[in-house]
Design a protein around this nucleic acid. Structure first.
Lengths: 248, 248
DNA sequence: GGGGAGAGATGCCGC
DNA sequence: GCGGCATTTCTCCCC
């Protein structure tokens, strides 16, 4: 097919708000938060009805270049190549594709009103600790959850068996140095805000890095190993369900 | 086309290591680091030669679900629907698509040995400060860059006009609380490691959040406003080049 | 829109 | 593989 025809097909599809997919041999130039250039090679281009443009190389998880929603998209032929020139003035983003060859091209009207549901997030973990405070330690009594406005985003906030204010910071995977400094900021905020000397800090996570544990102990905080609600449980103790997933 | 045929086409394309793109009406189920489910709707599926699988809804920048490289991919028909079942045992990741209708389908062999080149990263910014130390402050003398092994990843390390050890932490966009705690960790490490009382800390960035600035000053550090090499310069003062970009 | 924090973050580099 | 960190991070939520 002629490149002029592809340019027209893209223009029509954009007008009809269709999704566009093409595979091609092209360069990619981007200018915005950084400047980047990608020499000629084979790529897949996805243009969505909300005017997102995504460019993928044949390998790798992440797109090599992209434009965020509400991008202006123009397709035309210049010097015998198909040009897709995109700009998002609001984001100060610009991307341009120079396409020498189109391998395949398709468009279709796509509609999808569904939203993904996710379970096993950090929020689920803090809910678990709130509902099962003994998982933190004996005598721990939660007072509030997601104390956002006053002290920051404290996951679980309560008192220990001696009535001392205690802040619990949850991490879903592995607590790192950032988690410790985060906890420390909360503890200091609460100390100042409540005017008390003693506020305990606990990190609850399945694991913690060595440096983070050292810094945690240097600051007088402690680590409580907690397995999040469904983290790897399936794989550790319900092999039959795993098999069902594989073969089902 | 029959769903059995699509299953065969996918199997063949996988064998030939081709890139596969399809638009379809499907559900997506994921189980791994979390569990997620997405009800029937229109999506675009991209399968790459390195066995990455990416699922996009018709809107939004990011994929709604994905599988990382080296995923096992199987396509077959079950209960009149096309199933794409993927698993990555190493990552303990599982994703399954149930496809009721295929809108379009394409495969092609794609090859790309190119790598993207990027300018304007934080590394470029620390290079600029290393080469132009007066941008930090008068009398600043860089000693080393990327002091990685001993103290962490210090961007620029040097001495001020009085010979006091000075650590510069660069941020490409806006420095936040995390940047301040990061700087603070470096300063403390260096103090301890070198056995000196006084080590200065400077954050160099185009802007800084209010809370971060307050914490910075509480800790006796300082902020130096630095415009990164090409951040927005094009837009501010070279309108002609911008127009050139827009018009091709 | 700023600001803070999570994310199935990802990806890179160094040890 | 762990660990620390940048990312055109993105996204959500609250102020």
């Amino acid at each position: 097919m002629d490149k002029e025809e592809y340019a027209l097909l893209i223009q029509d599809a954009l007008k009809r708000n269709e999704c566009i997919v093409l595979a091609c041999y092209c360069t990619v130039r981007y200018s915005g938060r950084v400047e980047s250039f990608l020499e000629f090679g084979d790529r897949v281009v996805l243009i969505k009805p909300d005017n997102v443009v995504i460019v993928h190389q044949p390998s790798g998880n992440a797109p090599v270049n992209y434009m965020r929603p509400d991008t202006d998209i123009h397709a035309f032929v210049k010097r015998h190549n198909l040009i897709i020139k995109t700009s998002n003035v609001k984001n100060k983003d610009f991307m341009s594709l120079e396409i020498e060859k189109v391998y395949f091209f398709n468009t279709h009207k796509l509609e999808d009103g569904q939203s993904i549901t996710v379970q096993g997030t950090e929020k689920d973990m803090s809910d678990m600790l709130y509902d099962n405070p003994s998982m933190v330690e004996t005598g721990f009594t939660p007072v509030s959850r997601e104390e956002q406005t006053t002290y920051g985003f404290i996951d679980v906030f309560g008192t220990d068996k001696d009535g001392v204010l205690t802040i619990v910071e949850c991490k879903r995977f592995r607590a790192d140095l950032g988690a410790v400094t985060q906890l420390r900021r909360y503890v200091e905020k609460v100390k100042k805000s409540k005017g008390v000397d003693q506020v305990r800090g606990i990190i609850a996570a399945p694991k913690i890095t060595g440096n983070a544990l050292k810094m945690l102990e240097d600051w007088g905080f402690s680590f409580k190993q907690v397995t999040p609600p469904m983290y790897l449980q399936r794989f550790d103790r319900d092999q039959s369900r795993l098999d069902a997933f594989n073969n089902g």
